[in-house]
Design a protein around this nucleic acid. Structure first.
Length: 176
DNA sequence: GTAAGGATTGGC
DNA sequence: CCAATCCTTACT
């Protein structure tokens, strides 16, 4: 019952530009340490596409931090930003395709830092397997009826065409 | 060892 | 628009 609707690995082992928009409307599920299970509808995502994408962390090479992005899709990539926020990414594509989707918003919580805070993420979630994990996974949900796209946020340093690519996806034009 | 900078947020 | 905050990375 619990995992009936859990998305399989195949969902994530595709081009990040397909996965990122399709994640809108899906349910991000978190089982906390006290056993409480919460489900959050995904409302905003961003695609980071491989080593050529200058906005993608993997463009700086395979380091201890980015290593998980090079793995097969279906795992978690978390990292600490500004020394205070854990940002949640879902790795996509086949092995050696260093792409991932940044979860920028879930229903009730707007902004990637707030998502990580609500989900109580920390470094122990690095490389967590979304297919087998007992504390975080993704379930199917009602597809988004309308999707808005814009350039990605906070990557001014990346240069063209990366700063202009509309790789940010939102439900119902729910801009913040 | 030291310094620079960041896929943010919140406040002015 | 700007500062807080502190870990990661790239140097000296």
């Amino acid at each position: 019952m619990k995992s009936e609707n859990r998305l399989p690995a195949d969902f994530f082992i595709r081009d990040v530009l397909e996965v990122a928009p399709e994640l809108l409307g899906k349910m991000l599920v978190r089982q906390f340490s006290d056993g409480r299970i919460e489900r959050y509808r995904i409302t905003e995502t961003e695609a980071y596409r491989g080593i050529e994408d200058r906005a993608c962390h993997a463009s700086k090479g395979r380091t201890p931090r980015t290593e998980v992005m090079f793995r097969e899709g279906g795992t978690v990539y978390v990292y600490l930003i500004y020394g205070q926020y854990w940002l949640l990414n879902l790795v996509t594509g086949p092995e050696d395709d260093a792409s991932a989707v940044l979860i920028r918003g879930i229903e009730g919580f707007s902004g990637p830092g707030r998502v990580g805070r609500e989900l109580q993420l920390d470094r122990s979630f690095y490389a967590e397997n979304l297919i087998s994990s007992e504390r975080i996974w993704v379930e199917d949900g009602e597809a988004a009826s309308q999707i808005t796209t814009t350039p990605r946020i906070g990557i001014h340093y990346a240069g063209e065409p990366w700063t202009s690519n509309c790789w940010r996806y939102l439900i119902n034009a729910s801009l913040r």
